[in-house]
Design a protein around this nucleic acid. Structure first.
Lengths: 205, 205
DNA sequence: CCATTACGCTACGACTCGTAGCGAAAGCTC
DNA sequence: GAGCTTTCGCTACGAGTCGTAGCGTAATGG
């Protein structure tokens, strides 16, 4: 019996422009001052809104940064490059490019760190970042199966577990290389990584 | 002409017991309140020392947490389990166990996040955590080569690059599984991961 | 036109920060 | 032991941030 999907709330609607400005200002502040010194008051000033507006929409710094960072990862896509190896290399290079941006580096790792003590935050990260990008793994696998590069999966549950594993290996390796080892994930590194991922340590062509 | 290695400073020496108590108190605080709400005043109280003592020894929260967390990783070792696969599974399980501890989770990720904007901090992390554990990769490879499981390396530079790659893949995958995906890295997962690492995605036995 | 909600602004107590200054303690050298 | 040096515990401080409350105004829908 509802007219539409809860969009029909009375009163003045929230400004969409404000949301855009706030998230952009958050990323700007992440670049300039980093996560630990980022204050909501500063973000509000940069965005040209009142501090109270910020608190009305987000419960705290963590939630705000998650939303600001999540937008960065939505540009990932998986163009068909003809082979599984080329597909992997392509998407990994995109991921590397995103992680090279300072707002992604400091923001992402910080909220992940905070999420170890905050279940709601972890769930927010999972929904808005992690699960959204797992599609790339599924897409790549299905393409490789059509090409005959990978065998079709038999057990669907096993297939889901493998997809999760691949996602952790790929994303984890890139993040670790970029942030912890802090060395460039250039094309050469991506090629080596892809080779190991496809052939393993023992399988040298 | 120095009596010993710069240990011969005049004046009252710094209490070694205080350092131990401070680092332990830091880990305790990481468990109870997490990184963002951890205050140096609280740590000082827990350790039973004055806040000023803390500031005399560490320049800030980041440096303190790095030292407190670094001690956790020193217990990693690589017992000879007879095969490369078994060796990898063993050390990965140890790593998983350490990362399961809340003080390791929140502390490590937080300082890594901060290090994206602080070169000195990144170098401190590298020296006290990352490089210290790369020995495990080198040790495992050399053992596998003696067993004939891996070919001897030809180019030493290429060998170093590969070792770095392996380290990023292993550590990154475990960290991502544990912290970002936030799902258990149990024995079954470790077995699957080891299989992919050794045989690759294509190589199914 | 009226109810309802969002907005901008100001002000507030509570808290943490990092530092300074002090007297006392604990080592070394002579 | 005397004297020097450095650390330690304690107290106090201004500066800055936190998250919230209160108010008048702006923008929607019925």
């Amino acid at each position: 019996m509802q007219s539409s999907t809860s969009t029909a709330r009375p009163g003045r609607p929230r400004s969409a422009a404000a949301a855009t400005a706030i998230l952009a200002a958050t990323r700007e502040a992440l670049v300039e001052v980093g996560w630990s010194k980022l204050t909501l008051g500063d973000v509000a000033t940069r965005a040209g809104v009142a501090k109270t507006t910020l608190y009305r929409r987000w419960s705290g710094k963590n939630e705000l940064v998650v939303d600001a960072v999540a937008e960065l990862f939505d540009e990932l896509e998986l163009p068909d490059r003809g082979s599984l190896a080329a597909d992997i290399e392509g998407v990994v290079l995109q991921f590397v490019a995103i992680l090279a941006r300072p707002e992604a580096k400091s923001g992402l790792m910080a909220v992940v760190a905070e999420s170890t003590r905050d279940d709601a935050l972890r769930e927010r990260i999972r929904r808005s970042i992690v699960d959204r990008q797992k599609r790339l793994v599924l897409q790549g696998r299905s393409r490789a199966q059509k090409r005959g590069e990978l065998p079709p999966e038999t057990d669907p549950e096993e297939a889901a577990r493998t997809a999760d594993l691949i996602f952790d290996v790929v994303a984890g390796a890139v993040v670790h290389r970029t942030l912890v080892s802090a060395e460039p994930a250039d094309e050469e590194w991506v090629r080596s990584f892809t080779r190991v991922l496809l052939l393993g340590l023992t399988g040298d062509s």
